[in-house]
Simulated scan of single mutants.
Amino acid sequence: MKEEKRPIFGIITTAIARRQHWKRRRSGYMPSAIWQALEQRASELGLTTCLFRPEDLDVRRGRVNGVVCVRSGETKVWRRITCPLPDVVYDNVFVHLSTTPALKRARRFFENRGTPVFNPRLGNKAELAAWLRNYPNLWNYHPETMLFTDPAQLEALLKSHQSVYLKPVLGSAGQGIIEIRTQEDGNYLVRAVKYGKDKRSFTRVLGTAGMLAFVRAERHRQRYILQAGCELLWIDKGKIDLRTHLQRNQQGEWEVVALIVKRGSPGSIVSNYHAGGSVHSWYWLKRWAKDNDFELPRRRELFQLSVAICNAYADKSPYLSSLGLDLGIDEVGKIWLLDVNARPGRNILEQEQKIRCTQLHAEFAYYLCYHRQ
């Protein structure tokens, strides 16, 4: 009886050696534990995993030269072989390499062929905010946000909010964020983190004219969104926010992989781990709330809101597979959506959570192979 053909789960990545360097290896190739966990889960689901670089796609012959795990009993050997075109593709190329000509050609080829490519870029901060405005029930959790085009916008926001943030439209990891906070004497406290090419921090106290001159110069330097400040919780002089990490499973549904509490370094305007912050458990925050007689929202409410937000963005991008949501809790216990990360980093996840994320990529690939409409 002829064995049924297994679907090919292609992973387009730059994490493997180029083909011309492959033969120079004197020892067998063994990928990291994360890649092995992904391949193992895919194999359990009946998929053959093929890792390939953008330039490994042979459009003319309709095939890819990729790295595949070849099994013989209990033995596993990873080899570079020629494979048929994949049935589904996971885009694993780093963001800063995602505009190379070879990758653009590969994406365009698979799109024209009707092959689902998941883990897409979702849009910049202005586009993400604009999309969520289409969902009024969810927009209620979002601070007032707009593309910064005129200093008059900032002046208007500062009349109704104690602080306003300028966030680079293409920013990530807290880089280049500027906080402008009204002072009792009528001046403005202007602070920034990871600012400019040298990624420095600064603090300035400016009058109205100086503040407006500063933001005019910034508007010409790069594109920003303006976001009204939410007076979030602080613990031991560190700003608190939450990260929910969600991915889609083999039913195509969103699964919460992690809920992480982030605390900024003392006095910092951001809580990012890359900016010197620390990570804690939800139970750590619950203990603080109990000791300080503060009523936190229920964890179930955070999860339900996170899933609803992910579903809204999946309407925008049907092959969206993962999201990291930065949520804040203000001084009266209200939840705020502060930021959306379509390709969330995993450096703050525990090892078992990282492995689960990897397994979910295989499960979503299975869903796209068999159950997508």
Rank of each mutant, 00 (worst) to 15 (best):
L45V: 05
D150Q: 07
T75D: 03
V169L: 14
G73A: 06
F118I: 00
T149D: 01
V93S: 02
F109R: 11
F148C: 09
A130R: 12
P151N: 13
T100L: 11
T99G: 02
L97S: 11
N137M: 08
T82Y: 04
D58E: 08
T149G: 11
Q162E: 10
V164M: 03
T145K: 06
P101D: 14
A156L: 15
M146R: 15
D91V: 01
L103R: 08
R79S: 08
S163V: 02
L170S: 12
A126D: 03
L57S: 07
N134C: 01
R133M: 02
D87T: 10
T48L: 03
R121W: 01
S163K: 08
V77Y: 01
V164H: 11
M146C: 10
F148M: 13
A156Y: 14
C69E: 11
V88W: 03
A106Y: 06
W139G: 00
F109N: 05
Q175K: 15
V169M: 09
A126K: 10
W78A: 00
L132F: 03
V95Y: 13
R107C: 01
Y165I: 10
P116C: 06
T115F: 09
R71P: 02
P168I: 14
F118K: 07
V89I: 13
V70W: 02
L122M: 03
K167S: 12
G66H: 13
G46N: 06
T99A: 05
T99I: 00
A106S: 13
W139D: 02
S160G: 02
M146G: 13
E44N: 08
A152D: 07
V67E: 15
V59S: 04
R71F: 01
V88P: 01
N119M: 02
V117R: 08
S172W: 14
A173I: 00
P151T: 14
R80E: 08
L132C: 02
T115K: 06
L103F: 12
Q153C: 06
T149I: 11
W139R: 04
N137R: 10
P136D: 12
W131P: 00
E127D: 09
C83M: 09
R63Q: 14
A129H: 13
L147A: 15
I178Y: 05
A156R: 15
K159W: 10
D87H: 15
G66Q: 14
L147M: 11
N134I: 00
N140A: 13
L128A: 02
Q162A: 09
L85N: 07
H96P: 05
P136V: 07
N119T: 05
E74F: 08
N65I: 07
R105E: 11
R121F: 00
K159F: 08
E55T: 06
V68F: 11
S98D: 15
L157M: 15
C50I: 05
Q153E: 12
R107F: 04
L103D: 04
P168C: 14
L85F: 00
F52H: 11
Y135I: 00
G66F: 12
T149V: 09
Y141S: 04
R61N: 14
N124I: 02
S98Y: 03
G114Y: 05
P116G: 08
V117H: 08
L166H: 12
